[in-house]
Design a protein around this nucleic acid. Structure first.
Lengths: 228, 228
DNA sequence: TACCAAATGTGACTAATGTCACCAACATGC
DNA sequence: GCATGTTGGTGACATTAGTCACATTTGGTA
């Protein structure tokens, strides 16, 4: 893959959309192109964090294993997203793993390169601050959901979060197994199954060969806000 | 309060400890000094976020009200902490309120001033990035706690989080009512009460005139890591 | 195609924790 | 010093969702 192709991919996505050419060029020059198969770990929990990744293609799951063995899925990342910036910034261990859930490529940037780029291109820091602000918002909203809502509204929220914005027939961005949905929404696989069955009867979602499709987006949003 | 006093207060605390004099001077010059009584709201959920606060003295509670009325306490802030940076950065609404829980003073900085300072002092952005990284870590660890642990270990974690680092006799930084502890740890007041009673019998904590004191720090840490 | 592993569906049971309904203790202000 | 509001203590009960134990289906591949 050459520099021009990389520049195109980067420019397509949010964070780098309004980067100047010089910034893009620097990123590409200083970054390493990485490729991963489905199931590969791009970042491993517990490792020292000396690099940052920019996802170029594919999807990856950010998850942590709690000390009692529970797997908690924090997010699913798509092309254009920055990964692993926290440990890079504060010098601590990686708190979560990132796993490719399909063939994936990324640009890897070392701390030295990152610091140089940051110093050279002032807007970069501001953009990164904004990315992190939105991460904190997302995390707070997960906490809110976990604390204040019962499983129904919570699952509704996570389904909505996975739903494609253009809402082409209510399909989800990712095809998650029920166990994985459980790890994402914080409920047991069995409970996910029962909830989906109920909603299926009520025509709120459809479950076809394991794939969830949202039929009644409005109703699901309503459930997501429910008092109980 | 004059500039020199402000500079001293700022310099005492984490984020600004290694600020140059020029940076401190700019902050003070461009900031507004604010004072609040106990119970005043420094930041109100839902407002547009056009300023950032640096707490100079006192303690404040960051909390959000979920749409079903639940109050969720996200953090307690002390002098030196930056507040309200998220909405300032991404231009969105404030997602949480910040309330003084004792008489409190703060430096308020507008977006324009903040952007100027950021542009002028490069290290500022990096420091802020680090602050935000640690916020994300904290939020992730709350999610982990909520998801993976039962109420016992969770309460233990929150008590430890409130415990003074120098551990002078295990006193807590703040004297929270049991309801407030509940909002912080995500459990009902009654359940907090029962849990504290049990631990009190086992000499893990002492409850004296409503104030919690940690007697057996090691045991509490052990509970905080427990499997169930 | 036949097999195996993984994913799904479902009933019965259990554990954890919230809710409700009190009463007691304490502090505060008049 | 009394009235009142807030906080703390505790029992009984309801509810939610997890766990366990299977049967069933699906999908991939030898």
């Amino acid at each position: 893959m050459n520099a021009e192709e990389l520049a195109n991919i980067l420019a397509e996505h949010s964070l780098f959309a309004n980067c100047g050419e010089a910034e893009l060029a620097d990123l590409i020059l200083r970054g390493h192109f990485m490729q991963y198969k489905k199931g590969d770990e791009l970042i491993m929990q517990g490792d020292p964090g000396n690099s940052l990744l920019i996802l170029l293609s594919g999807y990856a799951r950010t998850s942590m294993i709690a000390s009692n063995g529970h797997e908690i899925v924090l997010d699913y990342a798509e092309a254009g997203q920055v990964l692993g910036e926290i440990a890079l910034l504060d010098g601590g261990e990686r708190t979560a793993s990132v796993t490719a859930i399909e063939p994936t490529s990324a640009l890897s940037i070392t701390r030295e390169a990152f610091e140089e780029i940051l110093a050279k291109h002032k807007n970069m820091a501001l953009r990164l601050l904004q990315v992190m602000a939105s991460r904190i918002r997302m995390a707070n909203s997960m906490i809110e959901g976990d604390r204040a809502y019962t499983s129904g509204p919570r699952l509704a929220r996570y389904l909505l979060r996975l739903s494609v914005v253009g809402a082409e027939e209510g399909r989800l961005k990712l095809n998650l197994s029920q166990s994985e949905l459980g790890n994402f929404a914080g409920m047991s696989r069995e409970h996910i199954n029962r909830q989906l069955s109920t909603w299926s009867e009520d025509q709120i979602v459809a479950v076809e060969n394991g794939k969830v499709r949202i039929l009644d987006h409005a109703m699901l949003s309503h459930i997501a806000e429910a008092d109980s």
